[in-house]
Design a protein around this nucleic acid. Sequence first.
DNA 1: GTAACACCTGGAGTTAACTCCAAGTCAAGG
DNA 2: CCTTGACTTGGAGTTAACTCCAGGTGTTAC
Lengths: 133, 133
Amino acid sequence: MKISEVSEQSGLSADTLRYYEKIGLLPPIHRSESGIRNYGEQDVRRIDFVKCMRSAGLPIEVLIDYFALVEQGDATIAARKMILQEQRAQLIAKMAEMQETLDLLNQKIQGYEEGVLKAEQALSENRLPAQAP
Amino acid sequence: MKISEVSEQSGLSADTLRYYEKIGLLPPIHRSESGIRNYGEQDVRRIDFVKCMRSAGLPIEVLIDYFALVEQGDATIAARKMILQEQRAQLIAKMAEMQETLDLLNQKIQGYEEGVLKAEQALSENRLPAQAP
DNA sequence: GTAACACCTGGAGTTAACTCCAAGTCAAGG
DNA sequence: CCTTGACTTGGAGTTAACTCCAGGTGTTAC
């Protein structure tokens, strides 16, 4: 698979794919004789994994460390598991924060709905309401 | 309230508070005669709001736009509501992505748990299992 | 009065994660 | 043979959001 195909399929730009390889987030991709990258199935699977983790905000550094451990074989399974557990904990925490924000946003939006309602009522009755930020 | 107190109470650094003011995310804070910021209750409430929104990843730009509308009074209520709804939609989408990542992370971790289990069994029986990244 | 301390400013530096660019190579079509 | 277009590289530039610093001023404690 050429870089343009992988780019299309993954939604990551070719630049990003090369960048990921350069910094070691992807392994050195096999090349044709003329030096053109040819992504294998395993590469594509890794890219999908990376994309998923990145979309949730896991830092590239962490993923690099993780894959470095994968390279080193089964002796590192415990360490890998710890990395994933740590990231999971952070993800859960972040989602909880976002839920709080979501709740507040919902409140505010509802406040505006009610505010507008009141304002409309007031307008048709010639009164003036007010609302906080 | 002095900047150090607000900093302590909000968890934002004094530098960040000044930065927020400089870029217009906070209004010009009232000063003492000698030029020292004196944050009022309203400022503190706004800072809490900003902090909450920022913790969920809402861009500063969006918040600045939002507060600019607030300044302009009730005529902008519909626009404000739209901003919040848009941000809510993005937040929900992001949380869904994170949930997917969380699911995958859970799968992987469980895979490692089972993998280790198999490995331990195999070790005590002199067999060799394997596992993917 | 002076030393220590919190605060001020403008501006430079940092970080993560891309993104873009110039200049070059190669394969295929006309 | 020549052009077109996808690919290559190393390196520079961008963006968001801080974070730090030097140099200066005002306030407080002794």
